[in-house]
Design a binder for these strands. Structure first.
Length: 281
DNA sequence: TTAAATGTTTAAAT
DNA sequence: CATTTAAACATTTA
């Protein structure tokens, strides 16, 4: 779930809420969530937020950035003067704010707070020099993104270089950044391509269709604020809506929207994969 | 009770 | 050595 559209939604909201705030104190309750360097961020004022694939960089005016990866169940929730607290938090805010799944709390000026919740504790936060964020191992390994660098031509080159299954390649962040399980499933369905097909056997027509499908699916998802079928929520504690518009993801046993045959599910590359055996040959 | 679950990350196997 | 695959990470939920 937290794939490009979800992280992009978080990025936009964090930018809206955090810019201008100064970090006064950081409380780390679970060490692995933010192992070291928190003191580098103290005193810095937020000047912007960047996204790299599924990772976020909260940039401060003291030359440091908080680089964050929320992995599967991380949540970043803001409370403070830049948001009206009339709307209630989604019940998906696991354990509430400051509860047993809150591992890091950023105390901001003007009584603002940024909570980091993470049920599975796979996510991480680290302090990195702002100018060196792109040099971080994780960031520099990322491939081009759907809205930044990826074109039909680039995609073709990527796919021709490997005999792995197309779905596994789509989800490989070093090949293409930002596509995860949900959008890989939906994009392949939209492009009518079987997820098990070898990447290097796709025709030019299929590659073109796949590129367009990735763009369309991601655009739709961003428009709807991402997919909240699991733990994902936005920084104001609200849910996204894309899960109400899944094309095939999570639809095992349901009818294909296109041909009415039954959607199947099987494991490919260790991940749950949904597809229509009739439309996606 | 056993299995599966969004994403990397690292170890092991081709 | 490069490319792939599988297991690990920690916890909840079906």
């Amino acid at each position: 779930m937290p794939e490009l559209p979800e992280v992009e939604t978080i990025k936009r909201k964090l930018e809206k809420y955090l810019v201008g705030h100064r970090i006064q104190k950081i409380e780390v309750r679970y060490k692995k969530s933010f192992p070291e360097g928190k003191e580098k961020l103290i005193g810095g004022r937020v000047e912007g937020v960047r996204r790299f694939g599924k990772a976020l960089s909260i940039d401060l005016d003291n030359n440091y950035s908080a680089l964050i990866h929320i992995k599967m169940t991380g949540q970043l929730i803001y409370q403070g003067p830049n948001i009206k607290r009339s709307m209630s938090l989604s019940e998906k805010v696991t354990g509430g704010l400051g509860g047993k799944h809150t591992h890091v709390i950023f105390y901001l000026d003007k009584k603002g707070k940024l909570y980091y919740n993470d049920v599975r504790k796979f996510g991480w936060i680290k302090a990195v020099k702002k100018a060196e964020v792109e040099k971080e191992d994780f960031i520099k390994m990322l491939g081009p993104e759907p809205f930044r660098g990826l074109t039909v031509k680039v995609l073709k080159k990527i796919l021709k270089s490997t005999g792995r299954s197309i779905k596994v390649v789509l989800m490989d962040q070093t090949k293409i950044a930002g596509v995860g399980n949900i959008y890989a499933n939906d994009a392949l369905w939209l492009a009518k391509i079987n997820p098990k097909n070898k990447a290097n056997t796709l025709t030019n027509e299929q590659i073109k269709a796949l590129f367009n499908a990735i763009i369309k699916v991601m655009r739709d998802a961003i428009k709807r604020g991402g997919a909240s079928d699991r733990a994902y929520v936005t920084p104001d504690g609200q849910e996204g809506k894309y899960q109400e518009h899944f094309l095939v993801y999570g639809k095992k046993g349901e009818k294909c929207d296109n041909c009415k045959k039954i959607i199947k599910k099987e494991k490919i590359g260790g991940r749950g994969t949904y597809y229509c055996p009739n439309c996606q040959k």
